[in-house]
């Protein structure tokens, strides 16, 4: 038989495994006004350099990795190393070039400004 394939994957057979990072969904708040959409996401323990924010084809994806160096014997662990992942669909009216992100006290704040075209306009009514 020429089309022989491996039924079990290599990684499943190897004895030593690297533990996959558990993924978690960060809790978010979303606000909007006439100029922008604001997104606040709780990502405790994630450093600035370990966050990536991608906007592609109308999808905003957040990813933040946190790793702790653990010393000593743990008596209890309620949280651990984790990758925060979440994606949102954003309207086309967002000005991708102007998106700003800030990280403070484990909270990621994303400013998604609306493009000029999408801003609401007041239409003046003329009296004839």
């Amino acid at each position: 038989m020429s089309d022989r394939k491996e039924i079990a994957k290599k990684e499943d057979k190897s004895i030593e495994k690297t533990r996959a990072l558990r993924s978690a969904i960060p809790t978010v708040d979303i606000y909007e006004n006439d100029d922008e959409i604001l997104l606040h996401a709780d990502m405790p323990g994630v450093k600035k350099e370990d966050i990536s924010v991608n906007i592609d084809n109308g999808t905003l994806s957040l990813s933040g990795v946190r790793r702790f160096d653990n010393k000593g014997v743990s008596k209890w662990e309620e949280f651990s190393d984790v990758e925060y992942v979440r994606s949102f669909s954003v309207p086309q009216s967002i000005d991708v070039e102007q998106v700003e992100a800030e990280l403070k006290d484990g909270v990621l704040k994303l400013h998604l400004p609306k493009s000029e075209v999408a801003k609401p306009k007041m239409i003046e009514i003329k009296t004839v």
């Binding site: 709780d42 405790p44 702790f68 014997v73 309620e78 651990s80 909270v107």
Partner: peptide
């Protein structure tokens, strides 16, 4: 807040997730 607890020889360590808190 979720917490972790570790014991080292002569000290304990507690970590707590407290996003947004100053």
């Amino acid at each position: 807040p979720r917490t972790n607890f570790y014991e080292n020889g002569d000290s304990f360590e507690i970590r707590a997730e407290v996003p947004r808190l100053e």
